[in-house]
Design a binder for these strands. Structure first.
Lengths: 182, 182
DNA sequence: GAAGTAAGTTATTACTCAATAACTTTGTTG
DNA sequence: CAACAAAGTTATTGAGTAATAACTTACTTC
C-alpha cells in the first residue's frame, strides 16, 4: 500500500479514535492498531501526533461542508435551508463520529489558543470559513440566516454531546428522529 | 483553612487549569500548585481527578445560569432576551475561562458517553436543564425562543473557541465588542 | 499536659506514551 | 541479478502522572 493510501486510512482511523477519546486521551498506539500498522510507523507518515489530529479534524469539517453544499445544490431560500437542515441531521444521526470529532476539535483549538499557539487553529478556521461561505451562498447571501442556521447546528452538537435522549425537552424545537450511534 | 474552604479554592483553580488544558492534559500537579497545596492532598479533598473536573464543570454551568437569571429578573419578552444576551456576552468577554471550561466539559462528556459511561454526564445534564428552565421562564415559556437563544449562545462558544477575531465576518449577526481574555 | 483530630506533607509506585534509531522486507528496474 | 527505494518492523528511551501509604504539624479540649 502506498504511503498516500496509508495516510488516508490513518486519517479515517484517527477520526474514529479521537472522536471517542479526545486529543490527549487517545494514544497513537490505538490509532496504529486500528490501521493495522506499527505505532512508530505513524511518525513516518505524519511529523507528530498533532498533525494527525489536525488532518482528522480538517477532514471532518470539510466533509460537513461537502454534505451541506451537496444538499443545497440547485435550491434556494427556504428550500435550501430545510434541505441543509435535514442533511445535517442525517449526518449526525448516521455518523455520530463526525459530531464528536467536531467537539473535540473546538476544545483542542481553544486549549491551543489559550496556550498561545495560534497556528494550530488556523486550518480549522479556514475550513469553517469555507463552510460558512457555502451556507451563506445557499441561503441567498443573508448573513442573519447564515448565522441562525449555524447556531442551531452548534446547539445540536452541544445537546448531542451532553447525551440528551431524543425525547428530552431540551430538544424541543428540533425534530430529530434518533440519536447518533455510539 | 478548613477542608470546605480548600475544596472551594480547588474548584476555582481547577476551572482555570482545565479551561486551558482540557481534562487529560491538565495534571493534578498544576492544580495543586495553583491552590498552593501538595498534589496528593487533592485526593483527600476529592475521591479522584474526575470528581474535581466534574465539580469545576458544574460550577461553570451553574454560574452561567445564575448570571442569566439575574439579568432577566423582573423583565419579560424582548427585554428579558436582550438583557440575557448582553449578560452572556459580558460573561464571555470578561471571563473567557467559563467559556473554555464549557467547551471542555462538552467534549469530555461526549467522550465519556462514547465510552459507555453515562453517569459522568448526569450532573451536567441536570445543570443544563436548570439553565434551560430559567431561560424558558424568562422568555415567557416559549420553547422556540428558548431554543433559539441557546443556539446563538452555542455558536458564540464555538466561534470564540476557534479563535475568530471580533471583526471577522464569521461573527456577523453578533455585536461582540471584544474577545475573551487569554 | 495528654490525647485526639483535622490539615497537611514527603516518598513512592505502577503505568502510559510520543518519538527516535536501527534494522528488515518487498518490489522494481536498468 | 544487482542495486536502489519505498514500506514497514522491533527495541528502546525518557519523561510525565494519578493515586496510595506512611508520616508530621498545629490546634482544641478536658
Amino acid at each position: 500500500m502506498s504511503a498516500e493510501e496509508r495516510r488516508e486510512s490513518v486519517v479515517r482511523a484517527a477520526i474514529t479514535e479521537f472522536a471517542r477519546g479526545g486529543y490527549n486521551a487517545t494514544s497513537t498506539e490505538v490509532i496504529a492498531r486500528r490501521v493495522g500498522v506499527s505505532q512508530p510507523y505513524l511518525f513516518r507518515l505524519f511529523p507528530n501526533k498533532q498533525a494527525i489530529f489536525l488532518a482528522a479534524a480538517e477532514r471532518c469539517l470539510e466533509e460537513t461542508r461537502r454534505v451541506l453544499a451537496a444538499a443545497s445544490k440547485g435550491l434556494e431560500g427556504e428550500e435550501a435551508l430545510s434541505a441543509m437542515a435535514e442533511a445535517y441531521q442525517r449526518l449526525i444521526v448516521e455518523d455520530g463520529e463526525k459530531l464528536m470529532m467536531q467537539m473535540q476539535s473546538y476544545a483542542a483549538v481553544a486549549a491551543a489558543e489559550a496556550a498561545g499557539d495560534r497556528a494550530f487553529g488556523e486550518p480549522l478556521r479556514a475550513a469553517w470559513e469555507r463552510m460558512w461561505g457555502d451556507v451563506h451562498l445557499a441561503l441567498g447571501a443573508d448573513e442573519n440566516e447564515t448565522t441562525s442556521f449555524l447556531a442551531y447546528g452548534m446547539l445540536i452538537n452541544t445537546l448531542a454531546s451532553l447525551g440528551f435522549p431524543a425525547d428530552h425537552r431540551a430538544w424541543s424545537g428540533f425534530h430529530i428522529s434518533s440519536r447518533p450511534a455510539e
